[in-house]
Design a binder for these strands. Sequence first.
RNA 1: GGCCCCUUCGUCUAUCGGCUAGGACAUCUGGUUCUCAUCCAGGUAAGAGGAGUUCGACUCUCCUAGGGGCUGCCA
Length: 442
Amino acid sequence: MSEIRVRFAPSPTGKVHIGNIRAAIYNWLFARHTGGKFLLRVEDTDLERSTPEAIAVLFDCMKWLGLDYDEEVFYQTKNVKRHLEVVDQLLASGHAYKVEKTSRDGKTGVVTMFRMPKEGAIEFDDIVKGHMAKKAEDIQDFAIVRSDGSPIFHIANVVDDIDQRVTHIIRGDDHVENTFKHICIFRALGAPVPKYGHLSMIVNQQGKPYSKRDGAAFVGEYREQGYLPEALFNYLLLLGWNPGDDREVLTREEMVKLFELEKVHVTAAMFDPKKLAWMNGEYIKKIPHEEFVEEVKRRAGSCAQSLNVADHDDAWWGYLADQLQVRTKFLNDIPAAVRCFVSDDFEFDPKAVEKRLKKPGAKDALIEVCGLFSKVDDWSAPTLEAVVKGLSQGNGMGPWVHPIRVAVSGRGEGIGLFEMLQLLGREKTLSRLAYAAENLCE
RNA sequence: GGCCCCUUCGUCUAUCGGCUAGGACAUCUGGUUCUCAUCCAGGUAAGAGGAGUUCGACUCUCCUAGGGGCUGCCA
């Protein structure tokens, strides 16, 4: 048996759909698991939409997800001559014929049709869907060359698969009906018929096929929203496959080792943004410390133009990142969370102000801690906590903690308060407490 | 309309004739805690419906219902 060769064959439209990229993931995993080759074919015959930019977006998405391919990229447009040669072959052998047809939009012209067998059944064993059979009489002859002389998908696809020596075709469910036709072309050409595996669709929360109207349907949008490629990859993989045990968060190595196309589900799976979000959080927690620190620095820069990363030392950034990491669900949440640390220009959440500062006693509490804090020599979280603990006398620090938090950060939630104060430093803390007591309390 | 495919908690799924139907997300309750988050403990929640085969069916067969795909000079 020769080596396994699979391909991902998208039309570059500038957007990479998640259903499509899942097919790429399954192809990639199948190739890596079996030690075969994962090929990329760009079906760029639609000259309107397949621009260099669109192709760049495709490459970018694949790189982002770590879908590396083997061999040279195969461009369908470069194989048109071959497609037409094969059509001549089919014409000569009687498997194809020309006929004058009128298209739906009323144009009349001569197209080349593939002649389907008129009796018997076409059968194949789909790796995911099982045995498939269809009576030949139920399938009409179909066009393979347009009246303008350009080859149509069916012939181009089959010829390219032959030329790329593809052994397994793993693609979307919407191609099952085409498979019966394609098998007939392979046979007419005397070429070996590849094995097929058809993947179910991903549906939205209404149970309908996922479309661009359902919010994030394109890979690029997840990237912009701060999802990690590993999380998207893992989530998409789980939509229709599982390792057979209770593991869900898997390393790339485990995925490659455990993936089996035979275990891919036949049923459509509903896309659940909540579970993806959870998984993203899981992956964020797993980011190595140093890497997360860099991520925080980078994102912090986007919320404070005047920020000079060097204003703080590595220990400071490391401490902040540690506090943040466990609470971060999306990388895009980072700027808002760090804003009060790197800039004095931050928003006060009206609800938090209402709830914590506009309350009787809040002003006095702030003034009181402000006085005590100003006398602290050792400006560290434990010391500051001891100060507030002393004030509360064991009755709960809430009356002090909440107003302080809102006063210094503008928000009702965030990292531990005393860690926050330590990071802010004495000067910022005291001036913000004084400002809030004076201007925001009643 | 015709042809093909599918149907377990709200969602993703385990189960390959023995099930007190398991896990995860979501949700709810409680614990830890200065908030949020994390973490820990626990709860609610499922075999579309109907026949049959069988000692026994979620697992096999058939029918019905519901859902999806295809039915182009799109891919």
